[in-house]
Amino acid sequence: MKKRDLAIIAITVFVMCIPLAIIAHQNNEPRPAMPSTAFDWNSIKAVATKTGEKRQFFDAPTATLDNFECHVTTLNPGEMAHTPHQHPEEELTIVKEGTVEVLVDGQLKTVGPGSVVFQATNKLHSIKNVGSTPAVYYALKWKSSKTAATPNK
């Protein structure tokens, strides 16, 4: 190998490390706390999914939480949002429209509009549209200093 080849390799390695360093630096910076905000339903873009659609309202730290996330899912009739799973964050589901079947503490329960479902940390849960019309629900999850630092399952 010639000196020229070694120089090209060294420059290439250096140039390739710059984007990685930028990404690593961005991921380590604390994000600012979400301020008081009003979210207009019509201004949140609906993104198509294989089971319906999703609107992501926010996913950010707050003054008292490490992270607070809210999205709205629309499930087509007969569709399940995901197979039963668990995660360290607690989760609150508020049914806006339709009829859903939820797995709660090992039991399947059927609930409709206005119903609220709380899923405790690391408990197996799921949600399925068992009605004949689209089901729409808000999902809220949060992380605090008490949330276990294990990845989602």
Rank of each mutant, 00 (worst) to 15 (best):
M1Y: 04
K3G: 12
D5L: 05
A7F: 10
A10I: 08
T12N: 02
T12V: 10
F14P: 04
V15C: 08
V15L: 10
M16R: 02
M16P: 00
I18S: 05
I18P: 09
P19K: 05
P19V: 00
P19Y: 05
P19W: 05
L20I: 00
L20D: 03
A21L: 13
I23T: 12
A24C: 05
A24R: 06
N27V: 00
N28F: 09
N28I: 08
N28E: 13
E29R: 11
P30N: 06
P32M: 00
P32G: 01
P32E: 08
A33G: 02
T37C: 06
A38Y: 14
F39L: 12
D40I: 03
D40M: 08
W41Y: 12
N42W: 09
S43K: 09
S43M: 06
K45S: 14
V47T: 15
T49K: 01
G52W: 02
F57I: 14
F58I: 00
D59L: 06
A60T: 01
T64F: 06
T64H: 07
L65S: 13
F68E: 05
F68T: 04
E69N: 11
E69W: 09
C70P: 07
C70E: 09
H71L: 14
T74G: 03
L75I: 10
N76H: 13
N76V: 11
N76F: 14
G78N: 12
G78F: 13
M80A: 13
H82Q: 08
P84G: 10
Q86M: 09
H87A: 05
P88N: 01
P88K: 00
E90L: 01
E91S: 02
T93F: 14
I94M: 14
I94F: 15
I94R: 04
I94A: 14
V95K: 02
E97N: 08
G98F: 03
V102Q: 06
L103A: 00
V104T: 09
G106K: 01
G106Y: 06
Q107W: 04
L108A: 11
T110I: 11
V111Q: 14
V111C: 13
G112K: 06
S115G: 14
V116I: 13
F118H: 10
F118E: 04
Q119M: 12
A120K: 07
T121C: 02
S126P: 01
I127W: 05
K128Q: 12
G131R: 01
S132F: 05
T133C: 01
A135P: 02
V136Y: 01
Y138P: 04
Y138E: 03
A139Q: 08
A139Y: 03
A139T: 15
L140P: 07
K141Q: 11
T150I: 13
K153D: 13
